[in-house]
Simulated scan of single mutants.
Amino acid sequence: MQRDFLIVGGGVVGMAVAYGLARAGQRVSVLDESDDALRASRGNAGLTWMQGKGAGMPRYGELSLDSCLAWPDFAAELAARTGVDIQHECHGGVDLCFDADEAEVRCNEYTALQGASPRLASDFRWQYLEREALLTHLPGLGESVHGGTWSPHDGHCNPLYLLRALYAACQMLGVEIRPATPVNEVRALGAGFSARTAMGSVAAERIVIAAGLGARTLAPVLGLSGAVRPVRGQMLITERRPIVPQLPTPQIRQTASGGYLIGDSHEDAGLDKGVTLEMLQVLAEKAVRIYPALRDARLVRAWGALRVMTPDGYPLYEESTLHPGAYNLNCHSGITLAALHAGALSQSLLDDRLGRDYPQFSGARFDVQAY
Rank of each mutant, 00 (worst) to 15 (best):
residue 85 D to W: 05
residue 332 H to A: 06
residue 92 G to H: 12
residue 148 G to H: 04
residue 49 W to E: 05
residue 163 L to S: 07
residue 363 G to P: 13
residue 349 L to P: 10
residue 347 Q to K: 12
residue 182 P to C: 03
residue 195 A to S: 08
residue 283 L to A: 09
residue 339 A to N: 04
residue 267 E to F: 08
residue 164 R to L: 12
residue 369 Q to E: 13
residue 73 D to M: 01
residue 282 V to T: 13
residue 15 M to F: 01
residue 317 Y to L: 09
residue 200 G to Y: 09
residue 248 P to A: 00
residue 261 L to I: 06
residue 348 S to H: 10
residue 362 S to W: 03
residue 280 L to T: 06
residue 165 A to Q: 01
residue 226 G to E: 03
residue 353 R to W: 00
residue 286 K to T: 15
residue 146 H to F: 10
residue 287 A to Y: 13
residue 38 L to I: 08
residue 171 Q to I: 09
residue 77 E to W: 09
residue 310 T to S: 14
residue 254 Q to N: 05
residue 271 L to D: 06
residue 61 G to D: 12
residue 67 S to E: 07
residue 129 L to T: 07
residue 329 L to P: 10
residue 139 P to H: 12
residue 345 L to S: 02
residue 45 A to P: 05
residue 233 G to P: 09
residue 12 V to C: 00
residue 271 L to I: 05
residue 361 F to Q: 03
residue 306 L to M: 09
residue 353 R to T: 11
residue 300 V to W: 12
residue 52 G to R: 04
residue 197 T to S: 10
residue 331 C to T: 15
residue 93 G to Q: 08
residue 297 A to W: 11
residue 62 E to W: 09
residue 298 R to A: 10
residue 280 L to C: 10
residue 119 R to I: 08
residue 18 A to I: 05
residue 277 L to H: 11
residue 62 E to V: 08
residue 68 C to K: 04
residue 188 A to E: 05
residue 353 R to M: 12
residue 6 L to S: 07
residue 78 L to G: 00
residue 164 R to F: 04
residue 157 C to G: 00
residue 363 G to I: 11
residue 116 A to Q: 15
residue 254 Q to M: 01
residue 267 E to Q: 14
residue 348 S to V: 10
residue 315 P to M: 00
residue 12 V to F: 06
residue 361 F to C: 02
residue 146 H to V: 11
residue 230 P to I: 00
residue 90 C to T: 02
residue 326 A to M: 04
residue 118 P to D: 15
residue 246 Q to L: 02
residue 157 C to V: 05
residue 327 Y to C: 07
residue 77 E to H: 14
residue 72 P to I: 03
residue 369 Q to H: 11
residue 311 P to T: 02
residue 44 N to F: 03
residue 100 A to Q: 10
residue 192 G to F: 08
residue 266 H to T: 06
residue 121 A to K: 15
residue 117 S to G: 02
residue 86 I to Y: 01
residue 133 A to M: 11
residue 229 R to A: 10
residue 22 A to I: 02
residue 351 D to Y: 11
residue 81 R to K: 12
residue 243 I to G: 00
residue 256 A to G: 13
residue 351 D to F: 09
residue 358 Y to N: 06
residue 10 G to I: 09
residue 13 V to F: 02
residue 307 R to M: 07
residue 69 L to Y: 05
residue 336 T to P: 04
